[in-house]
Design a protein around this nucleic acid. Structure first.
Lengths: 263, 263
DNA sequence: CAGTGGTCTAGACCACACT
DNA sequence: GTGTGGTCTAGACCACTGC
């Protein structure tokens, strides 16, 4: 990398240097490095929870300075894709890690600080394969007609059924998923997805609404049909913004609330 | 700062160098710099929208290298406290800025990309001073009995009343706030708070629930009392985590939804 | 043109974890 | 002690803005 400056690269990167006039498409070196690391994460070169090479090693591999690798990793860490630990190294982020378990679950009990009671009790009501309905297929970026796995379950806190949700997953990536597996896995469902299917959810979008349950939903949650519930539609993505899970849940909010930090 | 390393400082910082054994309380230089910049922001040395001194100037003022100032500002920018613009400088963040207007409003129309229709129409129903009820006082960290300003208003989109909310503000910081002012200000309410009262909201916490409106609320929103609504309690903070506004709103979610990005 | 933030490098030392 | 990430510095050049 000689004593180089941003624009040009003399190592084996996708050249965006003398790009055609139409695409300025210049990205700084550290962004290119970030992209390369991202590719390795995506390709499974290092699995969730594993140690990735040290900054020095990566700097040598990519023929850039340690500072440049550092800045790339800084961004990956900010996006929760990796986790740094001083003195030990940098690890691929995982939903199994104690500190970020249930990172996507924003429902908190009104009283009682942490989710005591040993977490939620899961009841799997259904787990089946079917051809994706048009809307599900669209959201998951599948061809209509592709098969999906649908799971319906209830989550209870302290014995009180609180969340009823349907989960849709692309059939191809989740071959062999069973109700048994969904029910018996210890720890977050997303951790099971990582361990058993190599699928890591890195971010998600949620749409919230207030709704009334239909009679079936009301019964499953043991509430009257006049009880307002929080409807949460979540679309979760793996690396590279590929949608890999759709959830539609309804939450009881009489003893819990959805907590959000704006900044 | 000579050719110094993290722990010690030879300029005018709060010494945490040889701190008493009980408080390790060591913070890196760039964090100290960040704190000093924060103090200036808080003290109003530079007002929202204004240009702050260049990195070189700040480096000279604090007797550290530009890189250290840069890292401090990096964090402030990540927290949306300042905004950098290449070639121009670093500006104090403001809710007036086009790009971040209504940053805290997560309610989006189901159809239609941007908030077209020229934004919300505001109707101020009430604007009065009163002694803070116990719970309001507690949330705003006031002494019970302190006066607060309470504003009740309706926000309509495309003529449809969609949000009904109460806003509580510490009376001391918002002396002279009138209904007229709340109604006629062009742009975000938070921008008005900055311009007219020098109060800048930097972050907020929200608690969401699904609720049914009471008869009065139903009428104001022009919905039946059986319509489930999204209840949003927001506590907004200025610099240094000082709570400065409490909002309790109920949102119609039949044509809009609350959008949240998890990462 | 000068001034600003943005990128990149190289080298030094610190704090932490493991052995 | 060795190796890791974390902090700090100094100097160079790039990209953008406005005079």
């Amino acid at each position: 990398m000689s004593s180089s400056q941003p624009s040009s690269s003399d190592s084996a990167f996708g050249s965006n240097t003398v790009s055609s006039a139409l695409t300025p498409a210049f990205s700084p070196l550290y962004q290119q490095i970030k992209g390369l690391i991202l590719q390795s994460l995506q390709a499974g070169e290092w699995r969730p929870g594993e140690l990735i090479p040290s900054e020095m090693e990566l700097a040598a591999r990519f023929k850039v300075s340690q500072g440049t690798v550092r800045k790339a990793i800084d961004e990956l860490a900010a996006e929760n894709l990796v986790m740094r630990r001083q003195g030990k190294g940098t690890f691929v982020a995982t939903h199994s890690a104690q500190q970020v378990q249930y990172r996507f679950l924003k429902l908190h009990p009104d009283v009682g600080d942490l989710e005591g009671e040993g977490r939620a009790q899961r009841t799997i009501l259904e787990c089946k394969r079917l051809r994706a309905p048009a809307e599900i297929a669209r959201l998951l970026a599948l061809r209509s007609g592709d098969t999906v796995v649908q799971v319906r379950r209830v989550l209870a806190f302290s014995g009180i059924p609180t969340i009823l949700e349907d989960i849709w997953l692309p059939g191809q990536a989740f071959k062999g998923l069973t109700a048994e597996q969904m029910a018996s896995y210890k720890g977050p469902t997303y951790a099971m997805f990582e361990g058993d299917f190599g699928v890591r959810m890195v971010r998600a979008d949620e749409k919230l609404r207030a709704v009334l349950p239909d009679p079936a939903q009301a019964e499953l949650l043991n509430v009257s049909p006049q009880t307002p519930l929080l409807s949460v539609e979540r679309l979760a993505y793996t690396y590279n913004d590929i949608p890999m899970e759709l959830r539609r849940g309804i939450y009881r909010t009489d003893t819990h609330h959805y907590k959000n930090a704006l900044s």
